[in-house]
Amino acid sequence: MRDFILTCQWYTIMGVGIVFFACLYFVFGGLNWLLSRRILPAFGYGRVLDPRPLAPQQLRRELGESAVTIFLFGTGMVFPWGLLQLGWARLAVQAPGWQIALEILFMVVWNEVHFYLSHRLLHVSWLKRFHLPHHRSVVTTPWTCYSFTPLEAMMLGNVLLLPMLLHDFSIYSLAFVPVFSIVFNNIGHSNYDYLPDADRDRWWLNGARRHHLHHACYRGNYGFMFPFMDRLFATELAPDAAETRIARGAKPDEKQNAA
């Protein structure tokens, strides 16, 4: 794989990238949809977090916006490839298993930090106009996870660049980043409680609850999968933050969101 990446042309990288991200989106999105809408409810396990109906034409809009994101993520693979071609970054040769494991762990943490900072910026500055379309999905689905505007997709999609300038990663560590990212992203937008028996006040692995609250309330819970950034910056929402809103069938106040 390393030799292929270093020797192939830029248009090949872009084409492979588009196919790669399309497969991630539709395979994991479809699996999540089946689990949360068909399989787990049939066994009586878990629960829907927000039972309100989807907005009109929501799925069509999400799929259309996600198609643009897939294109941008895929063609954007030319940038890390370009760092390698310019010699600004290098790939580790024959990295041992323990190094790959540590690199993946680091990238999980870095992805959380990068997402929190980017996401918070999209909520507190003039950039929020580019994030509000994502929040049209008040009740989320597995197809919401790539439903971004182009600028938001580019902000969130550059997670590899800085680490590659600072360390020689294994190609397998780098390739695994979009895989765990789409898995976590799907869980966060599933609108399904996969851990119904977990302590609601200590939901380290329950990103679905946290991100469901973010979409229901618009503000708070800016993290990706884990709560440590929200706890560090005091932006964590209470577990019952959206109960009143859901009970009365309300949607976030668009005028307040735009303030």
Score class of each variant (00 low, 15 high):
M1Y: 13
T7F: 00
T7C: 02
C8I: 08
Q9R: 10
W10N: 03
T12L: 10
I13R: 09
I13S: 05
V19S: 11
V19E: 08
F20W: 13
C23W: 07
F26W: 15
F26M: 00
F26Q: 00
V27C: 11
N32Y: 11
W33T: 08
L40V: 03
F43P: 00
G46M: 03
G46D: 01
G46H: 03
R47N: 07
V48W: 05
D50K: 08
D50E: 05
R52Y: 11
P56L: 02
Q58M: 11
R60Y: 11
R61S: 08
L63M: 13
G64Y: 10
S66N: 06
T69M: 02
T69V: 14
I70A: 09
I70N: 03
F71G: 14
G74H: 10
T75Y: 09
G76C: 13
G76N: 06
V78G: 05
V78E: 00
L84A: 12
L86W: 15
L86D: 03
L86M: 05
G87T: 13
W88E: 08
A92L: 04
A95L: 12
P96F: 14
L102D: 03
I104S: 09
M107S: 07
M107K: 04
M107I: 13
V108G: 04
W110C: 02
N111Y: 07
F115A: 01
S118K: 13
S118H: 07
H119S: 08
R120V: 12
L122F: 15
H123A: 06
W126Y: 10
H131S: 11
P133D: 10
P133H: 08
P133M: 15
P133K: 10
R136I: 07
V139P: 01
T141C: 04
P142L: 08
C145V: 08
F148K: 00
L151N: 02
L160C: 04
L160W: 06
P163S: 05
L165T: 13
L166T: 12
H167N: 01
H167M: 02
H167T: 07
Y172L: 14
Y172M: 05
S173P: 05
L174E: 09
A175D: 00
F176R: 03
V177T: 07
N185A: 14
N186A: 12
S190V: 11
Y192A: 00
L195I: 07
A198Q: 09
D201N: 14
D201I: 09
L205D: 01
L205N: 12
G207D: 06
R210I: 06
H211W: 15
H211C: 12
H212Q: 14
L213A: 15
A216S: 15
G220M: 11
N221D: 15
Y222A: 09
G223F: 05
F224H: 13
M225S: 12
M225H: 14
F226Q: 02
M229L: 15
D230W: 07
R231E: 10
R231Q: 12
L232I: 10
F233K: 04
A234Q: 03
E236R: 13
A238W: 03
A241K: 06
A242K: 02
A242F: 03
T244K: 14
R245P: 00
I246P: 01
G249V: 04
A250N: 02
A250I: 05
K251C: 00
K251E: 10
D253W: 06
D253I: 02
E254M: 07
Q256T: 04
Q256N: 04
